Simulated scan of single mutants.
Amino acid sequence: MSFSLTDSDLGKSCNGTGGYSDIGSGTPVRVTDGDGALLGAASLGDGAYIGGGCLRSVTVSDLGDAAFYSVEVGDQGQISKSAAELEADGWSFDVSLG
């Protein structure tokens, strides 16, 4: 999964500010199924500042089978995709904030 944050106050620190202040190295990433059961978790690592935003990659493995998967980064809310959508996207879940 790739995660990008674009914030006018971001600077080159790759740490979010204001409503994104929970985004930085160590921010939890949770993957749940359609019923809200936790399937996997990881933490954001250091990001790379690229052209006005910060790009981070994180891998959550061995999620098991589910009809729907939801990803939540920090306290930013969940984004969901069906298993068919994820399979069509090569099991990649791209999330962008800002």
Rank of each mutant, 00 (worst) to 15 (best):
A88H: 09
M1D: 15
I50C: 03
G74L: 14
Q78A: 09
A66K: 11
G26W: 11
A67Y: 01
S61A: 15
A41D: 07
T27I: 10
I79W: 04
T6S: 09
A37F: 00
A83E: 09
L39G: 03
D62W: 12
A88D: 15
T59S: 10
Y20S: 10
G11Q: 02
E87W: 01
G47E: 03
R30D: 02
P28M: 09
T32R: 11
V73L: 13
Q76W: 07
G64A: 12
T17F: 00
G36R: 01
M1L: 05
A42C: 02
V71C: 08
T17D: 09
G40L: 13
G34V: 08
T32A: 08
G26L: 11
G36L: 07
Y69P: 00
Y20W: 10
S61Y: 03
D89L: 12
S92G: 08
A48P: 01
G26T: 07
T6R: 15
V58T: 02
A83Q: 13
Y49E: 07
D22N: 15
Y20V: 05
A66F: 10
L55P: 00
G77T: 05
A84F: 06
G51E: 10
V60H: 05
L63C: 11
G53N: 10
L5T: 14
C54G: 12
Y49Q: 08
G98V: 12
V73N: 06
A88R: 11
W91N: 03
A83D: 10
A88P: 15
G47K: 02
S21R: 14
G47A: 14
S21V: 05
S82P: 01
C54Y: 06
F3G: 02
L44T: 01
G26C: 12
G24H: 13
S96A: 11
P28S: 07
D94M: 03
S70C: 14
G98C: 00
Q76L: 13
D9F: 11
A84T: 04
T17I: 04
D62M: 15
V95G: 03
R30N: 04
A67C: 01
V29M: 08
S82K: 08
S8D: 07
G98M: 03
I23M: 14
C54F: 04
